[in-house]
Amino acid sequence: MKGNVIKYEQDNIDTDVILPGTYLKIHDYAELATHAMEGLDPDFHSKVKEGDFIVAGRNFGCGSSREHAPIALTHSGIKAVLALSFARIFYRNAVDGAFLLPIEIDEDAYKDISNGDELEINVATNEINNHTKNKKYQMKPFSEIIGKIIAAGGLFKFKP
């Protein structure tokens, strides 16, 4: 999995800025995607490309249980969010619907990765390659259940 980074150097990016409440009425995923990150970065929709990654600080996705948040991100083209930590409901939503990969990284990787860097993520080896900086980082491995749900392709395809 290879893509470029859109970095937000801040903690507590909540689901209300990832997808503002007024758009929770929308059922069309492509239309939802046009409002992704609107509360934080109104230019997001024009700059995001298929395959991009978001890099952010602590407690990404805190707040509401709206699955619209990971849906809007994934339909914008985002394949993974790399953060110092995640709020639990967002984390599970991302995995349950097979929308995007929530990847926990450490402080060193977070500081090192810059906006626009090209990363390659290998979930099998838990390795992140920064091709722009020619560096390697380790991601925190998924827990057993999360790894299984991801491998199955979402909650409904998962068998214990």
Binding site: S65, G97, I149, L155, F156
Partner: peptide, 20 residues
């Protein structure tokens, strides 16, 4: 506790939920 929409579907279908 709160759950997302995929889990809502899972509970509607099975009355159970997978948790850590």
């Amino acid at each position: 506790f709160g759950i997302g929409t995929s889990e809502v579907e899972h509970v509607l279908a099975t009355q159970t939920i997978w948790m850590e």
